[in-house]
Amino acid sequence: MLHEQIRRLRTARGITQVELAHRLGVSKQSVSNWESNNIQSSIELLEKIADLFGVTTDHLLGREPLQMLDVSGLTAQQIVHLQMLIEDLRQGKRES
């Protein structure tokens, strides 16, 4: 479900509700309401959320499985480097 996906993606990246709200230009209460499944985001915000986390809207809506990498045993610095590499690869894919 959408609310679970948003919470999972946010926490996996170590982003607080306040930080996510700031990045999306919404209130912390909006993020809290999405994650509590009290309200749904607009289509425009759904697209922004997908772009921010580097996933598709289909993934957010539970229509596309997410592939996961096991980073257990890696240092925090190594994980950050992997995240940067993945973002660079995604940017290259979007530009082609």
Rank of each mutant, 00 (worst) to 15 (best):
M1E: 15
M1A: 14
L2C: 05
L2R: 05
L2H: 05
H3L: 03
E4P: 00
E4Y: 12
R7M: 12
R7D: 08
R8D: 14
L9V: 03
R10D: 07
T11W: 00
T11S: 06
A12S: 14
A12L: 13
R13S: 04
V18F: 06
V18N: 02
E19V: 00
E19N: 06
E19S: 04
L20G: 02
L20E: 03
L20S: 02
A21N: 03
A21W: 03
H22L: 10
R23A: 15
R23W: 07
L24Y: 09
L24C: 08
L24E: 09
V26H: 02
S27M: 03
Q29R: 12
Q29V: 14
Q29M: 06
Q29E: 14
S30I: 02
S30Y: 04
N33T: 06
N33K: 15
W34Y: 15
W34C: 02
E35T: 10
E35C: 11
S36V: 00
N37C: 11
N38H: 13
N38C: 03
N38S: 12
I39N: 14
Q40V: 02
Q40M: 13
S41C: 15
S41E: 13
S41I: 01
S42N: 01
S42M: 03
S42W: 06
S42Q: 06
E44W: 04
E44M: 10
E44V: 13
L45E: 09
L45N: 15
L46K: 08
L46G: 12
E47S: 14
K48R: 14
A50M: 09
A50D: 09
A50Q: 10
D51Y: 06
D51N: 13
D51S: 12
L52C: 04
L52Y: 15
G54N: 06
G54H: 06
G54L: 05
G54A: 04
G54T: 03
V55H: 12
V55L: 09
T56P: 08
T56Y: 09
T57I: 07
T57Q: 09
H59A: 11
H59I: 05
L61S: 05
G62D: 08
G62M: 04
E64W: 00
E64H: 07
E64T: 05
E64A: 10
E64C: 01
P65K: 13
L66N: 01
L66F: 13
L66W: 01
L66H: 03
L66V: 10
Q67W: 08
M68I: 15
L69I: 09
D70H: 07
D70F: 07
D70E: 10
D70I: 03
V71D: 07
V71F: 09
V71K: 05
S72N: 14
S72Q: 14
S72E: 12
G73E: 04
L74A: 03
L74D: 05
L74H: 10
L74T: 06
L74Q: 10
Q77Y: 05
Q77I: 08
Q77T: 14
Q78Y: 02
Q78N: 09
Q78M: 08
I79Q: 12
H81V: 07
H81R: 11
Q83D: 14
Q83I: 02
Q83V: 02
Q83Y: 02
M84T: 12
M84G: 00
M84H: 09
M84P: 00
I86D: 04
I86G: 00
D88I: 09
D88K: 13
L89K: 13
R90N: 08
R90H: 08
Q91K: 14
G92C: 03
K93I: 10
K93Q: 10
R94M: 08
E95C: 06
E95W: 08
S96P: 01
S96H: 13
